[in-house]
Each structure stands twice: as structure tokens, then as C-alpha cells.
């Protein structure tokens, strides 16, 4: 999981990075920010830095296993989920459903593109964004109440 502050990210240097790798990082970051309806270079840069840091931490293992793109996707998911956790105060944002629900809410709240530059920004207060997200949160199902519906038989009286 990527747990880096913006200060640390800014210390990462892309100078020795191959062009193909830079392009991959940029494409991945763009893909993920666009999946949140965010079109902001600042936000993309933030995510690129997060990815770069994750890559630095896990480079050898990921490349050896030959799943660099998967690793980057995982890192992007983790970085955004961590930020969403920071915004909402909810620890359980990494799960696929909760993450997707928050993505829905962000997309609805960000229809005017007013939150683009705030994406992945952990330095600003996020109370207003949290309010906007909560107002847009969907609830597909209520709480589960597991029960067993026993099959009846045609032999005896119903119990």
C-alpha cells in the first residue's frame, strides 16, 4: 500500500527514468484520474508521483513478476483509496464496492469539475468535499438479514 505524504512525493526525481516508463506512469495516472472524471494536470502529477514512489518501493518484485501494469493499477487504487479515507474519515475505502461507491459519489459531485484540482490533495481541509460526497452516496442494498428459506416437502405437513 502506498502511504506517502506530498512532501515525500515531491522529493522523487524523474531525471533517471526511461521515457517508456514515464509514459506508462503518465498513462496510468491519466486513466485513473479520468475514471474519476478529473481532468487536471495537478491531480495527474500528484498521482504520477504516488505511482513513482510505489514503483520505487516495489520495482524489483513487480518487474520480476512481469505485472508492472497491474502493480501500477494497484498502487493507483491504493493511493486514491487512502486519500478518500482521509476525506471521508472512513477507514474502509479500499474495498472494491466502497471504493466504487465513492467514485460514483465523486463523479456526481464533480459534474461541474469544481473538485478536479483538489483530487488527491491532502493538504487542504476536506470537510466540504466530504459533505458533497455524502450527499451523492448511493446505497444499492440495505443491511443483509441472512435467513434460510427451508424447502417444503410434499410428504408431510409444513413445520
Amino acid at each position: 500500500m502506498v502511504e506517502m505524504s506530498n512532501v515525500e512525493i515531491s522529493n522523487s526525481s524523474p531525471s533517471s527514468e526511461p521515457a517508456a516508463m514515464s509514459r506508462l506512469l503518465n498513462e496510468t495516472a491519466r486513466a485513473w484520474t479520468r475514471s474519476f472524471g478529473v481532468r487536471s494536470e495537478i491531480a495527474e502529477d500528484r498521482l504520477v508521483n504516488e505511482l513513482r514512489a510505489a514503483l520505487r518501493d516495489d520495482m524489483v518484485g513487480a518487474v520480476a513478476k512481469g505485472n508492472l501494469q497491474d502493480m501500477l493499477d494497484e498502487a493507483a487504487h491504493s493511493a486514491i483509496a487512502t486519500w478518500l479515507s482521509h476525506v471521508t474519515g472512513d477507514e474502509a475505502t479500499h474495498g472494491a464496492n466502497k471504493f466504487a461507491m465513492l467514485r460514483c459519489a465523486f463523479l456526481s459531485a464533480n459534474q461541474t469539475k469544481g473538485w478536479c484540482d483538489r483530487f488527491l490533495d491532502r493538504n487542504q481541509s476536506c470537510h466540504d468535499l466530504n459533505m458533497a460526497l455524502q450527499a451523492q452516496m448511493m446505497l444499492p442494498t440495505p443491511a443483509r438479514q441472512e435467513r434460510v428459506m427451508p424447502r417444503q416437502t410434499l410428504e408431510t405437513r409444513a413445520s
Binding site: P18, A20, M21, E27, A31, R34, S35, V63, Q69, D73
Partner: peptide, 22 residues
């Protein structure tokens, strides 16, 4: 996966792998 994610990294397929490039 959204389109951008599907296409991300496609330029690497058939090209040199990142470690080779490095």
C-alpha cells in the same frame, strides 16, 4: 477497466520491456 486503463501500457506490448529499456 475504463478505456484509458485498458489502453494504458499498450504501447509496451511488442516494444521493448521496461527493464530492457532501463
Amino acid at each position: 477497466k475504463p478505456l484509458d486503463q485498458i489502453m494504458a501500457g499498450q504501447h509496451l506490448i511488442g516494444a521493448e520491456s521496461p527493464e530492457k529499456t532501463q
